[in-house]
Nucleic acid binder design. Sequence first.
DNA 1: CGATAATTTAATCAAACGATTAAAATATAT
DNA 2: ATATATTTTAATCGTTTGATTAAATTATCG
Lengths: 223, 223
Amino acid sequence: MKKYASSEQTRLTLINAAGELAAEMGFSNVSTRAIAMRAKENIGSIHYHFGGKEQLFEAVVKEVVKRGDTYPVSQAVEPFHNVLDTPAGQSGALRAIVKREITLLFDPDYPPWHSRVVYQLMQQKGRLQDIMTRDLFTPIVDTIESLLKRIDSSLDREETFLIITQMISPIASHADYMAYCLEHLGTDHYSADYLQKMEDMIVQKVELLLGLTSEKFKSTLEE
Amino acid sequence: MKKYASSEQTRLTLINAAGELAAEMGFSNVSTRAIAMRAKENIGSIHYHFGGKEQLFEAVVKEVVKRGDTYPVSQAVEPFHNVLDTPAGQSGALRAIVKREITLLFDPDYPPWHSRVVYQLMQQKGRLQDIMTRDLFTPIVDTIESLLKRIDSSLDREETFLIITQMISPIASHADYMAYCLEHLGTDHYSADYLQKMEDMIVQKVELLLGLTSEKFKSTLEE
DNA sequence: CGATAATTTAATCAAACGATTAAAATATAT
DNA sequence: ATATATTTTAATCGTTTGATTAAATTATCG
């Protein structure tokens, strides 16, 4: 039996431990010693494998980015490429973006720390925020932006951004303030049903704002 | 001329410095020495006036809470007390809550760190979050909750909470991720016009979800 | 004025931090 | 089997942290 793990395995163990701790108490409250203890590795290994704490944190963020790249926004929107001039196509594309975001953050098949690690980086400037913004956030914002421009070319920059925040913020809050949300809902995780409701509500709302009144909504309105 | 400031003045100077720094780099990245330097006071004064760093931070949060208490949600909703069974009254109450939240966070007459200090506490559990949740957040949530119940008694707990997040999250994001938002908008502060648009959009959206279609919206829809 | 209380100052303390390294342990290749 | 490369370990380094205190300074009050 091997007594030394492979370099790659040790790296992943450290990344995972660091991610867990960052999810629990925020990056700036995580010490190298705590990471090493959680990972059951030696402190020195962090320096050996990553060069230092900051580079390990970078690897943590890149791990989340890497996962997002397995299903990029462009791919989510692609099926609607040819129908973007119809309300149904526009609506479908919007929903696809929202669905992707929710899935990516709350899919129970992935380590739960992924969702808690992302949005806390939006709070203060730094290298970690740059990576996360550039590789995760900007692509989404740009995609929504061009889609909105297509739906209503009269929207100005401010209105466009406001609509984007209407779409993304509720999802971000469920990730960033997860502890509070779960406590308020009296559960230990978001159910698939709840996430579906969230998706529906966000999509409905944006459709309404944009005048893309969907069938689903009409029935709601008539109640 | 006095060489020693009054106890109360020193306290406020320290609270303000701590608040500024917490807004700039997050509570957990603020050291007592940095606070003392920013406040041009001695480190020892933190111990003398507050007992320690954590208690100073508590005072920072309570300072924000105190300001919220000058215009409580109950007072914002009060004018609509007698018309809560009409759609117009319900709609007005919703708008009043949204307007209060936006004003409280982004009013340029108050220290700008107020808005940046609040929502970062939602990320991890602790005494500061408890204070902020209990004294600032819960009253708002409870008020919206009972209002929603009144508007549509068939809403369940999950739906109610989702609507609340639709109302609050966009505002919270503008506070919590302010640096990113301002950079994206290419400005150094949110204009009164922008904040008004935000209010309108949030209120419209919720009215639509609840079937409280307002005049303002109808015209938008007819475009 | 003189005495007491309140406040500020500068210095020191132990603890925790990230980084680094020489040596030990293991794996790999010849 | 031996030599070389890789990985882990334990210990130490200099800094920074929050807290504390005795002494100095200023304010207050009789």
